[in-house]
Design a protein around this nucleic acid. Structure first.
Length: 297
DNA sequence: AAGACGCGCAACCGCGTGCTG
DNA sequence: CCAGCACGCGGTTGCGCGTCT
């Protein structure tokens, strides 16, 4: 017997013989059955729904298919910079509470956010040889990548916007917390309270350059070289753009960088400078290159 | 051209929780 | 109070597809 068959059957599956239940990818016909049934009768009571709709699926499977794929209010396509920022911020606050995070990203499912985190964010953590839950990686996100996302958003370089009715609100309503999107000492944001007592977040338009990467050492030929030793990565990363520095954390460093040094960043880093902003995860292929160079990967 | 490999995502699973009789 | 059920959540798996060699 295959290992899968040896698993204990959930209560959802006990209502029908296992041999009659379908598993795996959904067909167009099944999708139609499910959509039509929910359109006529509404959702909920998933086991009964599966039977009544004539679907040889578990209620659990029907629910998942509806919530993660067939629901009409789902947003498809790339995670935008705004959404990435929201995910990073909320995850730093709540950890792997995907459904809770998804509640604040209209049209996105917990599954989608979870997959995003595992495939993109954790991948970068692996490349840095650090744990995604480590303080080092959290500092990297907070003081390097989140400011960059803020910059992209401020520059209007967010990914393709969703249809008008689905756009992220200018102020994100958050039930029990205030979500502070300001990631650096220079970026600013504020929270306001509405008449009904809920807190709304307001993003300010004053977006500044992100915390700069450390200056690489110029070689004799004028080119820059980077260490491939990841163990030194954080020492390098935490080095403020000043000649006399002391060992410190990324957080302390980011806080200590002045607005002036941020503005000087493009000068300080010569040809490397700050990357052009493109698309993808941290959002950008160019960002990835820039980041890879910094980290000496 | 074809096999190997890696990535992204849909789907599954086990388990915890809340509701109801 | 307790057992059974339905639902939802977070972790994991497996497959399709694109890229690399």
């Amino acid at each position: 017997m295959a290992p899968r068959d040896q698993r204990e059957m959930s209560s959802d599956e006990e209502s029908a013989p296992a041999a009659e239940l379908r598993r795996g990818p959904w067909t167009v016909e099944e999708d139609l059955l499910l959509v039509n049934y929910i359109a006529a009768h509404g959702e909920g009571r998933w086991n009964a729904l599966a039977r009544c709709a004539g679907l040889r699926r578990t209620g659990k499977s029907c629910r998942l298919r509806w919530l993660n794929y067939l629901r009409p209010d789902l947003r498809r396509g790339n995670i935008t910079a705004s959404e990435q920022l929201m995910i990073l911020e909320l995850h730093s606050r709540w950890g792997n509470r995907w459904s809770k995070i998804a509640q604040h990203l209209p049209g996105r499912t917990d599954n989608e956010i979870k997959n995003y985190w595992r495939t993109r964010v954790q991948k970068h953590a692996r490349q840095l040889n650090c744990d995604v839950n480590s303080q080092q990686f959290k500092d990297l996100m907070r003081y390097l990548w989140m400011p960059r996302l803020l910059e992209r958003i401020g520059a209007g370089d967010d990914d393709a916007p969703p249809p008008a009715q689905e756009q992220l609100p200018a102020a994100w309503p958050v039930d029990d917390v205030e979500v502070e999107l300001s990631c650096t000492t220079a970026a600013s944001s504020s929270s306001v309270s509405t008449d009904d007592g809920t807190h709304h977040h307001q993003q300010q338009q004053q977006i500044v350059s992100p915390a700069p990467p450390p200056a690489p050492a110029a070689g004799s030929d004028g080119s820059y070289s980077y260490s491939n030793n990841n163990s030194n990565m954080w020492d390098t990363l935490c080095q403020p753009p000043q000649t006399d520095y002391h060992a410190t954390t990324a957080a302390e460093t980011a806080c200590s960088w002045s607005d002036e040094s941020l503005l000087l960043a493009p000068c300080l880093y010569g040809d490397m400078g700050l990357p052009e902003l493109g698309e993808t995860m941290w959002g950008a292929a160019a960002d990835d290159l820039w980041y890879t160079q910094i980290m000496g990967l």
